[in-house]
Design a protein around this nucleic acid. Structure first.
Lengths: 193, 193
DNA sequence: GTAGTGTCTAGACACATGTCTAGTGACCTT
DNA sequence: AAGGTCACTAGACATGTGTCTAGACACTAC
């Protein structure tokens, strides 16, 4: 798919061969999630699907949750930035939120699994969680531009997390969730531009 | 500590003896979560702590996630209703949100575990999830009273879920989360009373 | 008291996770 | 071409999950 993302370390700097192994593992994980979901996914099956030994998978990912969270993180990273200098603030914010919400909307199984994996307690998951949170923050802050305000930013971050959970919990579809999220954002931004 | 909640069925109507077993299991689960958290909790340990065989625990709870979700549900049920006819709408809403947010704030380990368990995919968890979602909806709707509006209600539900997740993910403490939630609610309710 | 129903126990089971170790083999460098 | 390093393999291991079965035990009714 893209970029130097394939060379980005999961645990350390990677050689070409290693990067390839990691890529095969994350791709196999996505297929596996599509087929059998979070609970059905096993590290052994992902490894086999990648043509790799199970022990090798654990060399790069400390846990099942870590592997799945890495999938989510890579998808978020591949998402293009929203230009910060065009259109109304509210429209820019709505676009950022919709982009993230719909990132995985086409694959609800994958999305739900990522949400669950994000809550894992291993240190590698915690680290990715921070990066993901920071990325959300950064994108929303950029979209707000001069209009940025801590309370508004927090409210938007909370809304984003809430929307993903609501969809992940099965309360609604990801498409509907994106609409609800947009509606929330407009209420939060209220009078402001 | 209360009510006929102890007789409420988890899988079917319960005899006194059964209700007692279930109560011992949920109480042991809370203690276990406090001590060792979600990952550290094992059904066998909870069973032992309750003075019950493991197989018995599985008679009442189809999975670890089901047991923990039941804990969350029972705590939510025990939370007193906010009177719907006093004070400003916004203050009533804020109180409902704060109550739920702080429900388990004293026990972050328990709260985080519940959030994770809620995402489980077994049918018993799905069922409780619906009841929990409905309960949130009901309480917020009541607080809004005549001011109730589908968009506002959705935004508040999303904010509530988001806040729990943010705290569960460790982005902030539950106390701080309650404050952010309040601030979000005020933005969402905006001009409205 | 004795039988019968319903609850619980003990322990084996298949399967998953995550760790570890000894050993294989490909790719450098010289 | 030989040697060394790095990535990977194969498989055992301890531990947890969730299921199952045979049997123990208590409480009720007769």
């Amino acid at each position: 798919m893209s970029s130097d993302l394939a060379v980005e370390p999961t645990r350390r700097r990677l050689s070409k061969r290693q990067a390839d192994t990691v890529r095969r593992l994350t791709e196999a994980a996505i297929e596996e999630l599509r087929d059998v979901g979070y609970t059905g996914l096993t590290m052994r099956n992902v490894a086999t699907r990648s043509g790799v030994a199970a022990a090798t998978a654990y060399t790069y990912f400390s846990s099942k949750n870590h592997l799945i969270t890495e999938v989510f993180w890579r998808q978020l990273r591949e998402l293009p930035q929203v230009p910060a200098d065009q259109g109304l603030v509210v429209e820019r914010v709505v676009k950022v939120l919709r982009d993230i919400a719909l990132l995985v909307a086409g694959e609800p199984e994958v999305a739900a699994a990522c949400t669950a994996a994000l809550l894992g307690d291993d240190p590698d998951v915690a680290h990715l969680r921070e990066r993901i949170g920071a990325e959300w923050h950064r994108r929303l802050d950029a979209a707000l531009g001069d209009a940025s305000d801590p309370d508004v930013l927090n409210a938007l971050e909370i809304a984003l997390g809430g929307a993903l959970i609501h969809a992940g919990l099965g309360y609604c579809s990801y498409e509907r969730m994106a609409d609800l999220l947009e509606s929330s954002a407009r209420l939060i931004l209220g009078g402001r531009a």
